[in-house]
Design a protein around this nucleic acid. Structure first.
Lengths: 340, 340
DNA sequence: CTTTCCGGGACTTTTTTTGTCCCTGTAAGA
DNA sequence: TCTTACAGGGACAAAAAAAGTCCCGGAAAG
């Protein structure tokens, strides 16, 4: 197989290029459908005219459907895209990144999508799609899935796919409020994911920034107590990884905590924990729900994060070696590999 | 692998076409090197200008070398071509023909080259090349190879490759004169093959059309007797298959034999034996050397024949099921398959 | 009912491909 | 030694394909 590609490279050097272009177009259509030429060409950075040519071609191949409301993938196009996925990973060298990272980080699985999620929202969506697919691959009947917050998880939620045959899956937020905006809160995302997956969900309504006393009293509430128990029984946790400073700024972080994070030289953040380069916890947001020490009991801990800006954060978090699966993008993967 | 090709067909429909074109050009250069643009374009049926473009491309890819004396394959080009061979067989569906024929004809091996040797001398050469390669694949040290005559075998001789590491291989003609012209006689071809292979050879000098008495006396000659013994010890026989009528006409066939062939409804011929549709021998040219009944003792009986015109002859001969390997071309293979 | 996208038609410009003609150099045969 | 045939390649025009530009009618959403 590799030799075929090598031979083809020799015999048709621009084959790869063209193939990749069309693959990306199909991929983008899948992510944005139904979508028009203009917005698509904007997103892909291709001139509209040239995209039009490609679109016409794809239409002739019966890979896309053209509506007055926009373009959609046909069944055939969707199938083709699926079967193309692993080949393109090979072709683009993503398979190499995946296997190497998997070994070096001692993970069960690494998924790398092509591109840079810092620069293209589509790549972030694609990462979300890959993560959604990954969740489904590991999810079984009657299981609880804990979901964290953040913009990346929002992308996962947006791209979530139905549970299909899986029965009785419950989605819960991993932890209480962390000071995020509503759209990035674990609660919001959890609900959205569950809806898209056609699964059940329960939310954790606790105020942000609890005082010690309030914290201790709230965890005694029967309803909360019950839910916290469920959260700790989760078989799967899905969370993002953020740059420490960015996260601290985005959230309504109290001054003294901010100083603590700064002094501790935190570089990464995940579900309320701030890590320094060595992976040591320098600060944790005080809230209910899943705690770091619970992670070792969870079968699948899926971390999702991409973009060159997050490479350091990912690396720091990986030093904790609590995650079992990493979903990332090309630039982050390369950056990670460069540093290891 | 097949799915990759399928996907590529969808995404780049003219990929196959272009790839095949360039593959054929490379293949033809290999067969004709050193060769100029004009003769090459004539042979390929491509306009000279278009070939020129391709040639330039291939040069830029370092696949061919351009000399004042003509174009040659570079090492890289030759390697590429070799590794491309099996892929193209897959792509062009020749693998399917090979495996199907192999089963239906109960052979050890079937090799199908692309094209029609009736219409293109290059295809005949390619068949010769494939046969030469095949011979080498099965040949071992200290073995005797018996070689028949005919135009196809002449092509094999022309494309013969050196023995390489194989030691002490002896080439001998399979049978005595069959009435052919010099260039198609087993003796001539045997010598040529041996020379090209850098092997030894011995020739069988007996007149055509022997009378019974002459036949019986000649086989008592010590030198002849010795050689005949060697011929019968051959581990490999390489022969062509001809259309009965064509062969009878080409050779100086006596009237009564001609009638016999005609009345027996012979359709095929191989090393002096004429077969009817059922594979029954209706006439044999009286001469010394290998006889039909000796074939079952030979490890590798390689039959080489191509072109739609010979499909019936091949089929007839295959009913004898004495051959172990068939080297043919695409049209003959398809025709054979259609009839089976 | 208006606004906003949607696809697609039409035309020009640009680039690439292909056809045509001719030149110079080399190698083999006379 | 000279001729001849065939090698590759340069140059340029014609043709075709691709890309840029502008604009239109129609469906859907607000």
């Amino acid at each position: 197989m590799q030799s075929l590609i090598e031979a083809q490279k020799k015999l048709l050097p621009d084959l790869l290029q063209t193939m990749q272009k069309r693959y990306q177009i199909l991929q983008s259509i899948r992510l944005m459908q139904p979508v028009g030429r203009r917005s698509l060409s904007n997103n892909l950075g291709i001139s509209e005219r040239i995209l039009r040519g490609e679109v016409q071609f794809l239409k002739e191949q019966n890979l896309i459907h053209i509506h007055p409301s926009g373009m959609t993938l046909t069944k055939e196009g969707d199938d083709l895209l699926s079967s193309l996925e692993e080949m393109m990973k090979d072709v683009l060298g993503l398979t190499f990144l995946e296997t190497t990272l998997k070994e070096k980080l001692h993970l069960d699985e690494v998924i790398v999508v092509s591109g840079d999620s810092d620069h293209s929202p589509l790549v972030k969506k694609e990462m979300g799609r890959a993560c959604a697919q990954c969740i489904m691959n590991h999810l079984q009947d009657d299981e609880v899935v804990a979901v964290a917050g953040g913009t990346t998880l929002a992308a996962v939620a947006e791209m979530m796919i139905p549970l299909g045959h899986r029965r009785n899956v419950l989605f819960v937020p991993a932890r209480g409020g962390l000071g995020e905006n509503v759209e990035n809160q674990a609660n919001t995302i959890c609900a959205k994911i569950a809806e898209r997956a056609h699964g059940k969900y329960r939310l954790l309504h606790v105020p942000d920034q609890l005082s010690k006393e309030a914290y201790e009293s709230i965890i005694e509430e029967p309803e909360i107590k019950d839910l916290l128990k469920i959260i700790r029984s989760a078989k799967m946790l899905v969370h993002g990884i953020g740059d420490a400073q960015t996260m601290a700024e985005r959230r309504k972080t109290p001054k003294e905590d901010f100083e603590k994070i700064k002094k501790g030289k935190a570089v990464g953040e995940a579900f309320g924990y701030y890590f320094n380069q060595k992976g040591e916890v320098v600060h944790k947001v005080q809230t209910v729900g899943m705690q770091l020490e619970d992670l070792k009991n969870i079968r699948n801990v899926i971390a999702v994060a991409g973009g060159a800006s997050k490479a350091k954060a990912i690396k720091a978090y990986m030093n904790q070696s609590l995650a079992t699966i990493l979903v990332t993008d090309e630039v982050a993967a390369k950056e990670l590999l460069r540093e290891l």
